[in-house]
Structure formats: C-alpha cells, structure tokens
Simulated scan of single mutants.
Amino acid sequence: MQNTHFWNKLYLHRLQVVFTGILLLNCVAGHAQVKHRVQKNNPNYDDKKLTYGFLIGLHTSTYQLKYSDAFVTNKFDTVHSVVPSWSAGFSLGFIVNYRLDDQVDVRITPKVGFYEHRISYIYTDDTPRDDQLIESTMVELPILLKYKSERRGNVRMYMIGGIVPAFEASGKKKTEERVLEISNTNLSIDAGFGFDLYYPLFKFSPEIRFSRGLVNMLGSSTGKYGEPLKRINTNTITLYFLFQ
C-alpha cells in the first residue's frame, strides 16, 4: 500500500525530470547531426585504448520505503504515513575509459556525490508533521560497461550500465536521537544512455542515467523514526556532462 502511495505522489515529478533530460539530449544531438556534414572532428579519437576526462552530474534523488510489521501495531496508530520526497544534488568526478573494441568500452568514474534526502512523518492526531533531512557526502566508484553505436559524422549514441559501490565520506555522527539513522554504505545498479559529440579538441557527452539502490540503507530499526520502517532503498536520476 505504501509503495502505491509513494509512486502516485511522485509520478508526475519523475516524468518531468526524465522528459526534460531526454529533450535536452535530443536537442544537443540533433544540433550536432546538422553540423557533422561540415567536417569530421577528431577522426582518430576512438582508436585510443585509454582515455581520461572529468564529469559533472546534476541529480534528483529520493528514498523508497517499506514499512515494518510494527507500523500497524497500536504503538504507531497515530502515524498516518512516512513519505519521502525528491531532492536535488550534484556530483563531481573523473573518467577512466578503456576501449575493448570499436563498440564496447569499460569505464570507471570515481566521483563524490552530495545528497539530500527528506522524509516526512505525518500523524493522525494534533502532532505536527515531522520532516527529517538526511544529508550525505558519498564517495562512489561506478564500474560501467558502455555499448556504442557506429559513429555518424560527429555524433555517436551509446547505452551504459553497471554497478556503483559507495560509502559515506563526510564523517558525520548521528548525535541527535531525533534523526533517522542511515547506513554509511550503499550499492546500486545504474543504467542509462547518452551521446558522444566530437569537437576538434575534446569529446563532450551528455548522458542521463537511472540508479536503483540494492542495499537496505536503514541504519537502525529502533526508535520512533526507525521502528516503523523495514527497508530504505535509494532511487536517483542523474543528468551527466562528461568531457574527455
């Protein structure tokens, strides 16, 4: 029941983020397609075995919650629902790309991500709505496989996916009992697509990627914030700008 409530509330927001990212990628790729007939930039770039670069990511992220059995007991009969919301953030990192063949690359992109997650506890009595803000700085090491189409002029489309281990790097301690305790490690699976746009001196790649957490991020199932919950997973949509 809680999953249905969660997706219904955030469905339109997610669609706006996805459609905006796709529209941006298509506009950039379309512009490059028009220009590719003029000249072929950096024609030997894809012959390199090892290439490097950096990336900037703009993301929106939320938690997906699963209630525990305790949620339906008398102890929490005044708790109407626990509702997560989407919050913006960004990430910075480096690119190490190894070419396996003309269409497949292995890519490692170590990066630092800055996240905010908001969870609201809504009550049925006169207790005011309780908003919890969880801030985290995560060191992430995506290990990705990139599958590329044939290059057409100065444009090449690709699909990308892999796993992303991550751990908390901010060193914050949960000193306040009122704060929901979250685990400092995560493992997610990523999938997305993008376009390689070739310029005379570099390659620029706008990319949209979807991330689904596989690890239960609930650090403690005790206390008035943790006990109603059984599981917390991360969901993230990221628009990347990669320069190589």
Rank of each mutant, 00 (worst) to 15 (best):
T60Q: 09
E135F: 06
G153R: 05
T222Y: 02
V34G: 15
R99K: 14
L24V: 13
I189Q: 05
Y198C: 12
Q2G: 14
D190Q: 12
I122L: 10
E150A: 01
M138K: 13
N44A: 07
Q64C: 04
S188T: 08
T20N: 02
D105F: 00
R129D: 07
G89Q: 03
I160H: 09
V96S: 09
N26S: 13
S61I: 00
A169R: 12
G192K: 03
I143S: 02
E207T: 15
Q103I: 07
M159A: 14
K111S: 12
V155T: 03
A32T: 11
I134M: 11
V164P: 00
G93I: 06
F193H: 04
L187I: 14
Y98P: 02
L145H: 03
N26G: 11
D190G: 02
F202P: 08
A88Y: 06
R152Y: 09
K49V: 08
D77V: 00
K148F: 00
I95H: 04
E168L: 10
I56R: 01
I232L: 15
G219A: 03
K49L: 11
S91K: 10
F195V: 15
T4C: 11
T234D: 11
I119L: 10
R107S: 01
R107H: 00
T109R: 06
D102Q: 10
G53K: 07
G89A: 01
D69L: 03
H31T: 14
A32F: 13
R212F: 14
R99I: 04
N26C: 13
R118K: 15
A169D: 12
L92A: 05
K172I: 08
G53T: 01
G192N: 08
L239V: 13
G53W: 06
H36S: 14
F19V: 02
Y158S: 06
E168K: 15
V28M: 10
W7T: 15
R99Y: 01
K146G: 00
R14N: 09
I189C: 08
I143V: 15
Y121K: 05
G192I: 03
V28N: 01
Y67Q: 09
G153A: 04
P200V: 05
E176A: 09
F243E: 06
Y52M: 07
G194P: 06
G30C: 01
I95S: 05
I56M: 09
F6Q: 15
G89H: 00
V96R: 04
L15V: 15
L12V: 11
V38I: 15
L214I: 13
T127D: 03
V96Y: 09
R107G: 00
W86H: 12
E176L: 10
L218S: 08
L239W: 06
V18A: 06
E150Q: 11
V106N: 02
N74R: 06
V18S: 02
N44R: 00
R231E: 15
N216I: 00
A29E: 12
L242P: 07
T234H: 09
Q16N: 10
A32G: 07
S149L: 13
V155G: 00
E176I: 12
N97C: 03
Q2F: 04
A32V: 08
R156N: 02
K224A: 09
N154C: 05
H80K: 14
V104C: 01
K230F: 07
K173M: 04
D196F: 05
I163A: 13
D69F: 03
N42G: 01
R178L: 07
A32E: 11
Q244T: 04
Y115G: 02
L23M: 13
G30D: 01
